[in-house]
């Protein structure tokens, strides 16, 4: 079946709009699309989307993470030994993280990381034939927001499409929540979210808000946030009595 932008696509559908374009711009086929000779096929079920100038992709629901270079992920350290840590990022293979890939780390000054710690890291190498490799520094050797996540926070998992939804610049969720609560959040593209707020109640409330955003349309998010704030106020006043 032939489909065009905005349609629901199924694996095996052909995308017709791409083939007729004769612009000079290079066309980029994103996730969910593949080319065979002159035809573009979808290989995932979802919604076909296009971003200007000519990037085409299929937005699909997925829970399993497939590493992509440059993405930020939340990982759990599973093994310590020699020069590298092994980190579980929810992909088919464990990622490696060098102990030198932290800010200010030298051979003598090793970072203090134990098995079970959470790290927020960036994928330096991600290819289907190779083991993924993580770093906790940018190209200037600075940590910025990367590094170990404190054990006082809470970790939970959600679908990959939800992560894309909340990390979208147009998403009002975090701005709404941040108006009345102070919290820290690290959302990895691998579907893991780490949250830390001032109290346990607030942390749980924020986690609930993020998970509830999956099935809420953009217009309902404002109401969702105020509902959660109200409930939070009630529980807090209940604690004081």
């Amino acid at each position: 079946m032939e489909v065009s932008i905005g349609d629901v696509v199924m694996p095996g559908d052909t995308v017709k709009d791409i083939t007729t374009i004769t612009k000079k711009e290079t066309i980029i086929l994103g996730p969910g699309l593949r080319r065979e000779a002159d035809t573009v096929y979808a290989y995932k079920a979802g919604v076909l989307k296009k971003t200007e100038p000519a990037v085409y992709y299929v937005d699909s629901y997925q829970k399993r993470y497939v590493p992509n270079r440059g993405e930020h992920v939340v990982g759990i350290v599973t093994q310590k030994g020699g020069d590298i840590f092994k980190v579980d990022i929810g992909a088919s293979e464990q990622a490696s993280l060098s102990y030198l890939a932290f800010e200010g780390a030298t051979k003598k000054n090793r970072p203090d990381i134990q098995v079970g710690d959470l790290v927020f890291a960036k994928l330096l190498v991600a290819s289907k034939d190779m083991e993924p490799e993580l770093v906790c520094v940018d190209s200037h050797g600075k940590e910025k927001k990367l590094g170990i996540l404190s054990s006082e926070g809470m970790l939970f998992t959600c679908s990959l499409s939800l992560i894309r939804k909340i990390l979208n610049h147009n998403s009002p969720l975090f701005n709404m929540l941040a108006r009345n609560q102070a919290f820290e959040v690290a959302a990895g593209m691998n579907g893991r979210v780490w949250v830390k707020a001032r109290t346990i109640q607030e942390t749980i409330a924020i986690a609930t808000a993020i998970l509830a955003a999956e099935y809420a349309p953009l217009s309902d998010i404002k109401k969702l946030c105020s509902d959660i704030e109200k409930t939070l106020l009630l529980t807090q006043s209940g604690n004081m009595d």
Partner: peptide, 11 residues
């Protein structure tokens, strides 16, 4: 398989 987002040639 569709729900899991596994790459497929066809259904």
């Amino acid at each position: 398989l569709i729900n899991a987002g596994i790459p497929m040639k066809f259904t």
